[in-house]
Amino acid sequence: MAGTKAKQYNKKFLLDLLTEMLKIRRFEEKAAQMYGLKKIGGFCHLYNGQEAVAVGSVAAVDLKRDHILTSYRDHGHALAVGMDPNVVMAELFGKLTGCSRGKGGSMHLFDVERNFLGGNGIVGAQIPIATGVAFASKYRGTGGVALCFFGDGAIHQGAFHESLNLAAVWGLPVIYLVENNHFGMGTAVKRVSSVEDFSVKAAGYDIPGRAVNGMDVLSVYEELSEAVEQARTDSRPCLLDVKTYRYKGHSMSDPAKYRTKQELEKYKEQDPILLLKARMLEDGHLTEQEFKQLDNEMKHVAQAAVEFAEQSAEPPLESIYEDVYT
């Protein structure tokens, strides 16, 4: 988990990363507010705190040929791949203008045009699916890599182990990225896992495994760039244990009493947005005023998304029979 120097990056690149992370943070805050107002229902899993993982990773792939799959905690990935916040918020509101026409909701964001193959609600289900997407890329010779995000909880599903073995023996270009936020619902990793460093599991499948500092967007970007390059050229899988933290409860209904305030505060000190901001200030890539302005813009983006969602039409009743078969 080596530290990085911001110096080698140009201002625009850094500003883009910062913008994306701020966009996600402000979007999630709005989503929480709208949940409180009952505009959004069901399970709503927020991404606050984990922004660097989606943003740093997505910056390292080529969405023209690479694919991304993730779990139900998918708002951050959806925004990072460039989905319109309006369309994402509309989906959370269950509106016709949402990406899944109001059928999928918070847990099932998809954008096939951006090679974003979804939010999956079944813990671990996306792991073999991503493996199959990588298989298809290899089969068709597209040079594409599949980037598969899943939680620390998902790693104990048989699907994870079956997939790694398949990908290793068949030489599939897939990156298995554990978003290790240290908890699966209320369960701390160490209570249910034989090891705390998941990267060691890679050895069992004879593939590369590394731990990554997921609070630092540039570390994530650099590790992923290397992993993507390797997966693409060698057509081999790898496993990355990206350490991060979720600031909110598991979903909106979870008061998160299983962890201490101090632990949360400790991670907030390494907040991915503040970390990048500090570097950019130090390197003269950003002023406090520019940051404020950018932040305000992202608050407006989130607010505009809410307005768009509010004003959008409900799906018509007869649409229940649509999207079931061709």
Binding site: G41, G102, P315, S319, I320, V324
Partner: peptide, 11 residues
């Protein structure tokens, strides 16, 4: 109805 469950509450 013989369809998967939609998210939208009315549906």
């Amino acid at each position: 109805e013989d369809v998967p469950m939609p998210y939208n509450h009315t549906l």
